[in-house]
Structure formats: C-alpha cells, structure tokens
C-alpha cells in the first residue's frame, strides 16, 4: 500500500468511527466489528466487518452496513464502496444488497416489514437518553443542583462545560435535535418527547434515563464478550485498528 493509500485508509477509518451500532451507541470500530479496510489506487474502498453472533439481528446488521457505505461514500476521492459482512446467517443477502445499492426492504423482500427508519429513530432516542444520563451524572457529581440544571438553555449549558464535560456535552448535543428543536434558547434537558422536565419530576426522569443506560451498557458488555469468545480474542487486547489509530502505546507495540 502506498503512502497515499495509507492516508486514505486513515480517512476511511475516521468515517467508520462515526458509524455506530444503533443499539449500543458505540462506533463499529471501537466495538471491534470492523475487520479490515482496503483502498485501491483508483479510489475503491472495501470494508470487512463481523458481528458478535451468527444470529445478530439482520436489520441492525443492515443498518450498520448501510451507514458505513453512506459515510465512506462522502469522501471526495472515493469511487466505490464495498461492504462485506462475514460469518453471519444473512451475510450473502446483505452483501449482495450492498453491492447493488438495495434498501432493506428490497434485500429481504417478503421477510422484511418496511423500511428501517422507525427502528433507527427508536435507537437514536435511546442514544439521546443515554448521553443525557452521562452528562447529568457528570454535572451532578460536579455539584450542580437539579433545579438549576432543568432551567438551563442549550447556550447556557455550553458555556458551563469544560474538560470531560465538554466531550460529554458534545456527544449529547449531537443527539439533542432528535427529540425537538435544539437552538441556543431551547431547554438543555428535555425528556424523550422533547418536553421540559419540571424540577419536581427530575428524580423520576433520571430513573427513566438510568433504566435505558443500564440496558444499553448491559447489551454492550454482552456483545463485546460474545465477540471475544466467538473469535477467541482476549477482551481488551488491542485490535488492528488500535494500531492504525495509534491507540497502542510504544512499549505495547514492541511486546506484541
């Protein structure tokens, strides 16, 4: 691979970092789903990915492949994107659909019941809730009171978060628009229907968020574990992508 190609591969990986497993709200790269990226001189990209079980839901598998195709296709030098799922009971159907540019409905015909937009939205809302939970946990731990938090506008909130909080805020605001208008004067913390949370309802609101977060984290732990067991990789070991991203420290590289 030439230097150009290596640079291109990094660009592709940066795109893939933005593609999330819809259910776990984590990127397909950090979950270890992406197994390889190939870039040819004429701008063709081939992406390989895998999932924790042979049975992982076909709709989620499709959504991720579709998102990868779309996200990488935005790079100006890319001429075509191939996405290939391995070791999955619907690998062939999904891979063919990716090659032909089919929708989920077209690919699965009688087996599918409509487009995936509804499903996508359900999980974007859950991601919104989970990200809000993480940000609220941080702010409450930093000594903010629920009363002041529920009164904040988005602009006010933005002026208050620094360091760790800034990253949590960024992640939260990425999803804030899912449930309603998210201009600077909009309330910062709203429920899953975009409604303002009254101070009196704050504990109940937080418990709802907690329930969603616990569930997502539990699923995430299960998926990581199954992936590791399935492909016999010890959990927590660096993957190929960690090396490409420079996430592995020098002494670790030498050890491996």
């Amino acid at each position: 691979m030439s230097d150009d190609n290596l640079g291109w591969a990094s660009e592709v990986l940066a795109c893939l970092d933005r593609v999330n497993d819809p259910e776990l709200d984590e990127s397909v790269t950090s979950l270890g789903f992406v197994t390889g990226v190939l870039v040819s001189d004429d701008g063709r990209v081939e992406i390989g990915y895998r999932l924790p079980t042979y049975w992982c839901a076909a709709n989620f598998a499709f959504l991720m492949a579709d998102d990868m195709r779309t996200e990488v296709g935005r790079l100006p030098w890319v001429t075509s994107v191939g996405v290939e799922l391995g070791d999955h009971m619907y690998a062939e159907t999904i891979n063919t659909a990716m090659t032909r540019g089919q929708s989920f409905q077209e690919a699965f015909a009688a087996e599918a019941d409509g487009d995936l937009d509804g499903l996508r939205r359900v999980f974007l809302v859950k991601a919104f809730q989970r990200r809000q939970m993480a940000l609220l946990d941080y702010l409450l731990a930093a000594g903010r009171s629920p009363d002041t938090l529920v009164a904040l506008t988005i602009a006010e909130l933005q002026s208050q978060c620094v360091d760790t909080g800034a990253l949590l805020l960024e992640r939260y605001l990425e999803r804030r628009g899912i449930v309603g208008p998210d201009g600077p004067d909009a309330p910062a913390f709203v429920d899953e229907h975009g409604r303002i949370v009254a101070a009196a309802d704050f504990p109940a609101h937080r418990r709802t968020l907690r329930r969603v977060s616990v569930n997502v984290e539990f699923n995430g732990a299960l998926c990581r574990g199954l992936l590791a067991a399935r492909f016999d990789e010890p959990e927590g070991e660096p993957t190929l992508l960690d090396f490409v991203h420079g996430r592995v420290k020098e002494d670790r590289r030498q050890a491996i």
């Binding site: 049975w55 839901a57 076909a58 709709n59 619907y90 019941d113 995936l116 509804g118």
Partner: peptide, 12 residues
C-alpha cells in the same frame, strides 16, 4: 431475550 433467529423490528 437475546435472539434465536434474526429478528425484524418488533421482535424484541
């Protein structure tokens, strides 16, 4: 719970 067969949108 976790799936036995791949699922469509409502199966969970």
């Amino acid at each position: 719970g976790p799936t036995i067969l791949p699922l469509n949108r409502d199966a969970f």
